[in-house]
Design a protein around this nucleic acid. Structure first.
Lengths: 167, 167
DNA sequence: ATAAACTTTCATTTTTTTTTGAAACTTTAA
DNA sequence: TTAAAGTTTCAAAAAAAAATGAAAGTTTAT
């Protein structure tokens, strides 16, 4: 396999993986492309490589920047904007984890708390509902906290976790 | 909030959360419904509660059973099939984690290994590509292994992890 | 063996999500 | 200023994903 082929395969695979985890394909592909690019890439070049429209590129770059995992770069004497991805994988994972927690887990926890708080001195069905949603609330909260704690180590958290787990 | 309202809110929220994580809405909703149901539920009742077609119910129940998180149940003297969800949350998380690893992470690792193995005594761009994909391979492999190790504790793994992390 | 009761399948339709592209907007240089 | 070079926005189109429903398939009881 030669470089161009390998790069393309990587971008396609990352895109597919993204879809399966609820991230749109193009967004994941742009991210993949930037991750393996040595230098910052212009929007024009992203459009060209991925064969996508200007609007698509612009919107997904914006989204990636909102996630905090892609940065704008300005080159001296260049009018155009260039883009780079966060390349440190520990940092990348921390940012994704934080964002998903903030955008998805926290709101879900709020709902879980609400629905598990209904009055239910009534039927078996109601008792079971309250019991199960309470357990779910506790579980998700605990998992969310553990993730937060783990990623707090910041530098090299995954390696540190490995050590903690194994011993 | 009364029971019916709370139950509906939970089902809708779980469905939306599923979508954001790459699981189709109905599949997540059926799962939610079964999780908080005291007794096994018939397909008819699922269709009724979620206002979905027979085909949709059938296909998503099949998918949930393939994931190993929903079970068929037979009631004595009843022709119809009934369904229940895995209600132990530790077990549920282990199963989802195992399946996603098998279906998505392992194939991705295979591709990462392939593309990071190209020959590249060439340009800076190629060197960076190989370097970054190698790092990514190592990271994903390590993360996959850690998850596997954590869930190996089986019983109460999350609580045990909390203890390990905090001390 | 038959038919009633129920489930599965899959071509078609519907819905949802993503993408496009052109107009509006912004920035920079002359 | 002004116009060139670039970026963003968003209504409309396209593509992808999910849902429908009726026919085919199963199972069970008689």
């Amino acid at each position: 396999m030669e470089f161009k082929e390998a790069k393309n395969k990587f971008v396609q695979t990352w895109g597919a993986l993204g879809s399966q985890w609820g991230i749109n394909k193009t967004m994941a592909q742009i991210h993949a492309l930037l991750m393996v690019s040595h230098e910052a890439v212009s929007m024009e070049d992203i459009m060209e490589e991925l064969q996508i429209s200007r609007g698509n590129a612009s919107m997904n770059l914006r989204a990636l920047m909102d996630w905090g995992i892609v940065y704008k770069e300005y080159k001296a004497g260049e009018r155009r904007e260039f883009f780079t991805a966060e390349k440190d994988l520990d940092e990348l994972a921390v940012k994704i984890s934080r964002e998903r927690s903030k955008r998805e887990i926290k709101p879900a926890l709020k709902v879980l708390k609400e629905v598990s708080s209904i009055q239910s001195d009534n039927t078996e069905a109601e008792k079971h509902f309250v019991d199960q949603t309470t357990k779910l609330y506790d579980f998700v909260l605990k998992a969310d906290n553990v993730l937060d704690k783990i990623t707090e180590y910041k530098d090299n958290w995954l390696a540190k976790l490995v050590v903690k787990i194994m011993k």
